[in-house]
């Protein structure tokens, strides 16, 4: 085995690859949840270690009953490009969610529940924030079976040590 590099130039330091990411999902809307899931899944696909932490309204993404009812925010979301008053009409959020779900299916992006199952299968950890769980009066039985644990902020920092933290 002999390697001869033709492009490596002496004196240029290569950046250290990222080896671990800890991704926090704090929002419970469709657009608040997907980016973190995609980043966690993508990290594993690149061979990095990844952990997902769900806090505040982000807990809806791992709540066994609410996971099927995640919606796009059509109010207070200028990037929807519809007037706020229209966005507030009954059914608008469901309609926008339905349209987006169809688009995602065409692009082979899995629904949130299936995506979380897959992410758990990649070996990424799935955790809930204890303060939020207590605040909403929930316990472990309220969550999807892929939840690894309910942990404190201290546990989180311990687990995230040596890696990158991404807050979404």
């Amino acid at each position: 085995m002999s390697d001869t590099s033709t492009s490596a130039s002496a004196g240029v330091a290569t950046p250290q690859p990222i080896e671990k990411v800890s991704i926090i999902i704090s929002k419970g809307s469709l657009e608040g949840i997907y980016p973190g899931l995609i980043m966690a899944n993508g990290a594993r696909a690149e061979g990095m270690a990844a952990n997902l932490f769900f806090t505040f309204f982000g807990l809806d993404a791992i709540h066994a009953k609410r996971i099927e009812h995640i919606k796009v925010a059509t109010v207070g979301n200028p990037a929807m490009h519809i007037p706020t008053l229209l966005g507030g009409l009954p059914g608008m959020s469901a309609l926008a969610t339905h349209m987006m779900a169809k688009k995602m299916e065409d692009l082979d992006i899995p629904p949130i529940a299936e995506f979380l199952e897959m992410i758990a299968d990649t070996g990424a950890g799935i955790y809930a924030c204890k303060a939020s769980v207590d605040m909403f009066g929930l316990d472990k039985d309220d969550f999807i079976p892929q939840l690894d644990d309910i942990i404190t902020v201290g546990d989180f920092y311990e687990m995230a040590a040596g890696g990158q933290i991404i807050f979404t």
């Binding site: 899944n41 594993r44 696909a45 690149e46 299968d121 990649t122 070996g123």
Partner: peptide, 27 residues
């Protein structure tokens, strides 16, 4: 991609990561 592999190769996502811990599709 990994998802397509898991769906069509006959090897589950879980097994794929056991076989190729550093990223199944990439490796």
């Amino acid at each position: 991609s990994v998802r397509a592999l898991g769906k069509t190769s006959g090897v589950s996502v879980k097994e794929l990561y056991e076989l190729f811990p550093k990223g199944p599709a990439k490796i």
